[in-house]
Amino acid sequence: MDWSWSFVWEILPTLLEGVRVTILATLGGAVLAAVIGLALALLRRSPNKAVMRTTSFVIEFIRGTPLLVQLYFLFYVLPDAGITLGPMTAGLIGLGLHYGTYTAEVYRAGIDNVPTGQWEAAKACNLTGRQTWTQIILPQAIPPMVPALANYLIAMFKETPLLSAITVLELMNQARSVANFNYRYLEPMTLVGVFFLIISLISVSLLRLLERRLGRIG
């Protein structure tokens, strides 16, 4: 089959609209994942054994099951329980929860890397638990985590096509609908691949830059 440039120009605006939705979903999911991950990491350190065990199990469970099935669960099962989510909301929650369990691991490692002396010093200065976290531990723990967190951001970006399965009109879904409509698969599918490659290559090089920056400060 031959490559048709005129068809490429025709479908480009539709695909770019899809790129916009894909990027929005990635960023929204990333913010949620960052927050959920922190919450899970803190819950996992809870002195209460039951809370700690439950959190560990939830993390293991979410990490051991496919994101696609979790999305189906959020989108098709929750309405039965009276919670109806829009496709995009369900998608963002799914991405945020799934990647939150990965970022929780990053936070855990980062927090464990803060020397014990800092905890002792905070105690010696008579800081409250909240002050210790917000003023001593997290400011030291978070900067070294940034590269690892950004890695998951890129991984999440590559998983956003799953949202098409719950009818979010992101890049993959737009490409499929124009492909089905015109009965031409070569150009839309290839363009989607090219878009993904370009965006992820750019973000990987930004990440390298960031790593070097952080390395210089640290």
Binding site: L162, M172, A179, L186, M189, V192, G193, F196, L197, S200
Partner: peptide, 22 residues
């Protein structure tokens, strides 16, 4: 770089829908 840079999804659809054209 190619397989890590593009999504598994895109690769799957490409293998299924585009390879037959070749």
């Amino acid at each position: 770089e190619f397989f890590r840079g593009t999504s598994i999804f895109v690769q799957l659809f490409w293998a299924y829908f585009v390879l037959p054209l070749f």
